[in-house]
Design a protein around this nucleic acid. Sequence first.
DNA 1: CCTCCACCGGAAAGCCGGGTCA
DNA 2: TGACCCGGCTTTCCGGTGGAGG
Length: 401
Amino acid sequence: MVETGLEEFFEVFLRKESVFFDKKVLQSSYTPETIPHREEQAKQIANILAPALKAEKPSNIFIYGKTGTGKTLTARYTTQKLTDVSIKENIPLRVLYINCKLKRSTDTEYRLIAQLARELGKAIPPTGLPTEEVYKIFFKALNKQKQNYILVLDEIDQLVIKTGDNVLYNLTRINDDTESQISIMGISNDIMFVDGLDPRVKSSLSEEEIVFPPYNALQIQSILNQRVGLAFNNGVLENGVIEKCAAYAARDHGDARRALELLRVAGEVADRKNSKKITIEDIDEAEEKIDRDRIIEVVATQPKQYKLVLYAILSLQPGRGNNIFTGEVYEIYKSLCKKTNTSILTQRRVSDIISEFDMLGVVNAKVISKGRYGRTRDISLEIPEAVFSKIKNILEESIHL
DNA sequence: CCTCCACCGGAAAGCCGGGTCA
DNA sequence: TGACCCGGCTTTCCGGTGGAGG
């Protein structure tokens, strides 16, 4: 019985029409043929990197711009073209791209250097060696194959936040004692990031700076238009859909990635409704859905202690304004720990957990002063009404009560 | 104008599980 | 096997502080 039901389901699914022609085109991993509205920046990067083809060391570049402004895409695009030429002309040049935020892979000093050494063909164990040792192996490998390297460090700000600028210092002065030359292209979405750096690193890293401004609504429209032809079947977009998408994305900070995601999810929403068209309402629905799914995902994947803290905040929320304070949360949290037989963390730690939730956008927590009655955080939930009870359920289930 | 609350948040250090190497 | 390393998570210690109330 069940099988035939499923079989039928799959058959129906197979024959079901979709608004999509090729969904991949809307995913962030997709690299388009051209990058609209970034010709200027691509040109600049090309200018700076070009000397590498003549075995000269290009200046280090620091790229910054908000999320979804095409930094990574442009960096990959330009370096790809550069390698294409270097291969064709048989020039010893190599581009190493590292995303510094990849958890458990490139987000610490040891792991970053280890990864670089691996790119050069060395086997490095995931842990166990002194970092110093890994540096040695890496340098040795650099010396062995003499060539120009361009090291792209994406999300470089995350790396520094986590592990300090020591790594960058070491990397920027590699050229002093190796045969190979290595240029660094740092990509960050935090503009203030360089200011916190060691002055030596700062001046070295930002020999050249390139800014990626946010896209405006019109530009986002054209980016979307570039892709809809490939992504969707003909005529599935209702009038005004692109405009609305672009408007939404431009509203906060010209994030093209968000616009593409919005469009993709709207398509999925339409598909699920068996609709042959994507309507403007689908966009609204998509935006909410993205928001909800994100929060649910974030909450569901937190460790137990975090869940307890969040649950404590949750149970203080209903029917109140923004007056939840750290002390109250901690008291509730402690009682929850006892109830669930969990070890109790210190208030210092819980305080950090609260600020992590703040950064994740699950909670809003800003420090206020209550004068005579001390200083604390003013905490309020950022969870949309629609998912409140669902979140509560998730927490209750995974904490057992 | 001063006090003093109830925390904040930086720094350092400890614990533990994962690992290497000789 | 023992000495040693990394990294995540946590505790300990402690100096700081905005502003209501005296």
